[in-house]
Write a protein that binds this DNA or RNA. Structure first.
Lengths: 145, 145
DNA sequence: TTCCCTTGTTATGATTGCCTAATTATTTGA
DNA sequence: TCAAATAATTAGGCAATCATAACAAGGGAA
């Protein structure tokens, strides 16, 4: 039972499990590996690590289930991911694979506090679009330099 | 001569060398260790790594000198660091040790393109303060939620 | 049922980056 | 000058994360 803080890598696995559960009902080793671009043995190792941390229930060759604690943590990470993605897309006019990749790296180094503030920046820009304070076109010209 | 992409850790060392050179004329192992909060043997190891990458000239027990390539890379990282810090301070109203730490982690996962766009967000907010479009107080209330 | 294909696991090894302890080199000051 | 203090290096080890190769388990089809 490891009590050390979650590493970025383990956060990635946890998030992948949550995303795959939503998408496919169950998260399979093969799909986690594909999503994170690692080989299957790396996933097996990670699952043991997450089990030691009581974040998943898992027996070999069987289904993976997030524990309450695991689900909670996975949701937090996923939320940060979403905030960063919307910041990238709406505020920075960046989308696609590159933006996705950068958001993925950032999210592990982002405090909840800062994440919330970034969300409010996104809200402010979106509201500006809605009220006509600034048009998306104007904003994008501004942001593209 | 390693040609792999610079790791976050090696970027930290490179940046620390540049900062210490500016501050003290020369970067010493002891000071790099203190700045990055690692032990001196870790620095020695990192210096060999950076030398293998042709980013510093370095012989043991002697001065450390950034090569042209090393200087260039160090400056880029330092610039990203500065951009993130100003984003934290001006846009997110976050300063102090915590903000510094988060900027330090981010900067290694930040493309030049996204960094430049973030800079323009900072400029936009600052300009808003100058023109009175929005006051710092209003902005901070907004961002603090 | 039995063979085959897919999926998952184990065993093992490489890399990175950090540490402590011990040694060597350099600097300082009496 | 030379002994003590400081600085830096080497040696050896540990933890995390990934990989490849080989083996085991499970499911479908003849």
């Amino acid at each position: 039972m490891s009590n050390r803080p979650l590493t970025p890598s383990m956060e990635d696995y946890l998030e992948a499990i949550l995303v795959l559960e939503k998408k496919n009902r169950v998260a399979r080793v093969k799909d986690i590996a594909a999503m994170l671009d690692v080989q299957m043995p790396s996933v097996t190792g990670a699952l043991k690590n997450l089990r030691d941390r009581n974040l998943i229930d898992y027996e070999k060759n069987s289904f993976i289930n997030l524990t309450d604690m695991g689900l909670e943590k996975a949701k937090k990470i996923k939320k940060k991911h979403g905030i960063l993605l919307s910041f990238m897309e709406i505020v920075l006019n960046e989308s696609g694979e590159e933006a996705e990749k950068e958001a993925c790296s950032w999210e592990h180094h982002l405090s909840t506090n800062v994440a919330n503030k970034i969300q409010r920046v996104v809200d402010y820009i979106e509201e500006g679009f809605e009220t006509g304070r600034i048009t998306p076109d104007e904003w994008n010209r501004l942001i593209e330099g």
